[in-house]
Design a protein around this nucleic acid. Sequence first.
DNA 1: ACGTCTTTTTACGTTAAAGTCAACAGAGAG
DNA 2: CTCTCTGTTGACTTTAACGTAAAAAGACGT
Lengths: 142, 142
Amino acid sequence: MQQRFYTITQLTQEFAITTRTLRFYEAQGLLAPQRRGRQRLYSPADRTRLKLILRGKRLGFSLSEISEMIGMYGKAPGEAGQLRLLMEKITARRAELLEKRRDIGLTLKELDEVEAGARARMAEIGGVFEDGAASIVREEEA
Amino acid sequence: MQQRFYTITQLTQEFAITTRTLRFYEAQGLLAPQRRGRQRLYSPADRTRLKLILRGKRLGFSLSEISEMIGMYGKAPGEAGQLRLLMEKITARRAELLEKRRDIGLTLKELDEVEAGARARMAEIGGVFEDGAASIVREEEA
DNA sequence: ACGTCTTTTTACGTTAAAGTCAACAGAGAG
DNA sequence: CTCTCTGTTGACTTTAACGTAAAAAGACGT
């Protein structure tokens, strides 16, 4: 198995972030790349973790929340009390995510309405636009 | 029609925010309650706006993004160029929201996996828990 | 070996979104 | 009228999440 590594700039380019960001995440304990001398070497696993972090950010979670969530992925703890705690956290997170999904649904619906209004207004005043802007192809979902 | 109003503290209690937050939103131009003397009086419309703001926050949007989105809801502009711009913004927002929804789906799936692992681990070590914690009723969706 | 480019470390600066604190105004209860 | 609540304004502070700058150490092509 060939352990391929990524340099810091490769990751910054792939994900459109800065080196400062990556080092900051490391300082926060979210990443822990290997070192060759002083240089950081990011493994595929590190890259995956980074993707999880960025996904969390897109969803509006704070770095500490993200840290907690990623912590769950590690492995189920051996002790019963810890397991129960983990289950509680999962339940809480799930509720939060479902709420966000409802919020998104509402917002999308409202956007549709605004768009319909705009479209009507367009028809009223200007006729049709030259390019396809008036018949946007909707990105497929899920 | 009776115009019922809300005091600032009523809103803070209903939405679990502080007066500071409400005044801050006002300073940012997100709210504009009437005044009776110096006192703020929030109309039902103001309350609705506030709900939109908080929903935006839950989804991780910044206040200026929220401001822009709420601005769309106002009314379609009369000028064609403005209309087109509006449509573009709508399209961009929609894409963003759909991405978030995909992200949520992935995260939920991962949570399910973690939960399954935890459940298995539970069965392994401790048998079943006394209360219903081991058979969580899933919140209904949408 | 040399100059150039990348990377690291350290330190200070910045921005958004409030929190905290102080001083004061108005309104109603006793 | 005085006390107490609620609300207001203004100033200062805080926190998260980076940005920016400076100096030095490696890495790389020729």
